[in-house]
Nucleic acid binder design. Structure first.
Length: 585
RNA sequence: GCGCCCGUAGCUCAGCUGGAUAGAGCGCAGCCCUCCGGAGGCUGAGGUCAGAGGUUCGAAUCCGCUCGGGCGCACCA
């Protein structure tokens, strides 16, 4: 309906241009919006206000002319001018009922479109280092990314979900070293655990597996391991230098064995992350290995291109990228003075690789603490000579956990962070996903565990799911009362749905495709959440005000068709969110 | 210090790319209710949209400034 009005309106504009009422050179963005107040009709346009100036007339007069030329249409009851020059459209009530048939016909496809047909979108999200379990910060990115991907899929895009695995680099080496040290402890060696190593219990668990699989094969006496090392930070040294030195020592002592330990750590943690995300309803088409970019020469190749384009230089033994010339605040190192690539170097290669795979749109979902990274990645893409406008970086702010009025303290340093798995175990998948995407992603959010768990109307997840269950409950009672649904009879008598609750529901249902399109195109899943809460509210209000299972066969079946449509839309929306639509609760 | 994000009811948050009287939930005040699931219903109070400017027919929304909060400014990822 909205689309129809928009196209009729732009037709009208063209007509007026042909009549020289409006100049031909303007090409206004015709925009129809739903009214907030019923006295303003169903839809409204501000087009006259926008064009009045260029038409050298006043808005109300222009609106007059627009209405005069507006094509006649059966669905439109009347068109009015209001206020400063708004054009209000009143829809024929018969047209309002069509949404029920539309929902029935489309079923699970209601709300989907083909706007993105033929376009490939890649969504990269989470991509946490496999150095430990996912925590609640990653959880928000996971929920957000997967819903954005679902929304884009519903718009007809070919969506490719990807997790970039940092399976190379210093952090992973520190993990491997940490595993080895815990392994040594398990084998009876005693020493002071480095301050910069990974201290989580999961490291001990992995070390234990190492013991089981390889017994004492990798044991070296702590005397030798720690011989002639630098000082650790608590002793007045530098913790980074210390752990790097220890890693080097590990490689020397272990030889090939170092890689075995490294891979055990990597595979164990990555496996855990994969399970965790799968249980959270988050799936990927591909887990992209950073190491593969080193192995196949991609990093070398992309740096070579940068070099030949004159964007690299040497300074202090390191190789720098001149990102400051391309919008970044300073230049960045791509090869360290010890010859190792920085994380940024592989990221350049990775983003180049993404574009070479032919995606029309790249979406990167990052934690908000990485925002400083955007400029340099963009700079790199420009320097490589590829279309950097395809890259969209979406930032997700952190979530604070609350238990009622108590803030749950989290500090990564002490290892006392709350994991995503713990959160899911306590709150459940549905509520976790719902709460994570309930707020705009770039908004800091408070996540109340007590509220998320509560079975009451204050809990929005419960409220929405309960609306779905309630419709199902009505249908369970149908045979108990000796009735059976007659869909055709109901469709033929939709005109009996005349109460304000019913017309409100009809409008809300009709809005669904618009909401999905907007949520998808702006990457804002919270719009869908808000919509579902409104739909649930409309339904509960209706439920409280009217008996559905009335004696009249025509009215009863009309109402059953309406609530069937409600159930379908609730189901479709919840499914896009990756949340279940229970039939009873 | 520089950069990015944010500031809307007591609290948590919406606000449809600049529109009509700024909304919802919770909380608060009052009233009603014994009906398909009481996991109710109705009404009300509550706002300098952080502040002061600018852009225009029109600003919570756009632009520059001030204040306040978060984050980032590595040869870490």
């Amino acid at each position: 309906m909205k689309k129809q009005l928009e196209s009729l309106l732009s037709q009208t504009i063209k007509t007026l241009q042909a009549q020289n009422v409006l100049t031909a050179d303007i090409n206004p963005l015709v925009h129809i919006e739903r009214t907030r107040d019923v006295s303003h009709g169903d839809f409204a346009s501000n087009i006259a206000l926008i064009l009045a100036k260029s038409a050298k007339t006043n808005p109300r007069q222009l609106a007059e002319q627009i209405i005069a030329e507006f094509p006649k249409n059966e669905a439109i009851l009347k068109v009015e001018i209001a206020g400063a020059g708004f054009i209000n459209f009143f829809i024929n009530s018969n047209a309002q009922y069509q949404v029920i048939a539309g929902i029935q016909a489309a079923g699970e496809n209601f709300g989907k479109s083909q706007i993105g047909a033929g376009k490939k979108v890649q969504v990269e999200f989470v991509s946490a280092n496999p150095t430990g379990p996912l925590h609640v910060g990653h959880g928000r990115g996971a929920a957000y990314g997967s819903v954005v991907a679902n929304l884009l899929t519903a718009m007809g895009f070919e969506v490719h979900r990807e997790y970039y695995v940092n399976d190379a680099g210093r952090q992973m080496e520190i993990l491997a070293t940490s595993v080895w040290l815990r392994y040594l402890e398990a084998c009876g060696e005693t020493f002071t655990f480095p301050s910069n190593a990974y201290r989580g219990d999961y490291v001990r668990d992995i070390a234990q597996k190492l013991v089981q699989q390889h017994s004492e094969k990798f044991v070296h006496a702590s005397k030798i391991v720690f011989a002639d090392l630098l000082l650790d930070e608590p002793e007045g040294g530098n913790k980074d230098d210390y752990i790097d030195a220890l890693t080097l020592r590990a490689k020397q002592l272990l030889g090939e064995g170092y890689r075995v330990i490294f891979d055990i750590g990597l595979n164990d943690i990555l496996g855990d992350i994969k399970d965790d995300l799968a249980e959270f309803g988050v799936t990927y088409e591909r887990w992209f290995s950073e190491r593969s970019l080193m192995d196949d020469g991609s990093i070398e190749k992309s740096l070579a291109v940068l070099k030949s384009n004159g964007h690299l230089y040497e300074k202090d033994g390191a190789t720098w990228f001149k990102s400051s010339e391309l919008g970044d605040e300073k230049d960045r190192v791509v090869i360290r003075d010890n010859g190792q690539y920085t994380y940024f170097a592989s990221d350049i290669a990775y983003h180049w690789n993404k574009l070479e795979r032919g995606f029309d749109v790249l979406i990167d979902i990052w934690g908000a603490d990485h925002h400083g990274y955007i400029a340099r990645v963009r700079a790199a893409l420009i320097a490589l000579g590829v279309d950097e406008t395809k890259l969209n970086v979406l930032l997700v702010q952190f979530a604070n956990l609350w238990r009622g009025t108590e803030k749950v303290s989290m500090s990564t340093r002490s290892g006392e962070f709350v994991t995503l798995r713990e959160l899911r175990d306590e709150v459940g998948k549905d509520a976790t996903r719902f709460f994570y995407v309930m707020r705009r992603s770039e908004q800091h959010m408070d996540f109340d565990l007590e509220l998320a768990k509560s079975k009451s109307n204050e809990n929005p997840v419960f409220y929405v799911q309960y609306a779905h269950a309630r419709v199902c409950s009505v249908f369970r009672q149908l045979p108990e009362k000796g009735f059976a649904q007659d869909v055709a009879l109901g469709m033929a008598n939709l005109a009996e749905l005349t109460s304000e609750h019913e017309t409100a529901l009809l409008t809300t249902l009709a809005r669904y495709p618009e909401v999905i399109e907007r949520a998808a195109s702006q990457y804002e899943p919270h719009l869908l959440i808000n919509y579902l809460r409104e739909l649930a509210t409309d339904f509960h209000t209706y439920y409280n005000a009217h008996q559905f299972l009335v004696e009249s066969d025509t009215l009863r079946n009309a109402r059953l068709n309406l609530i069937t449509a409600v159930r379908q839309v609730l189901f479709n929306g919840l499914t896009l969110l990756g949340i279940s639509a229970p039939e009873a609760m």
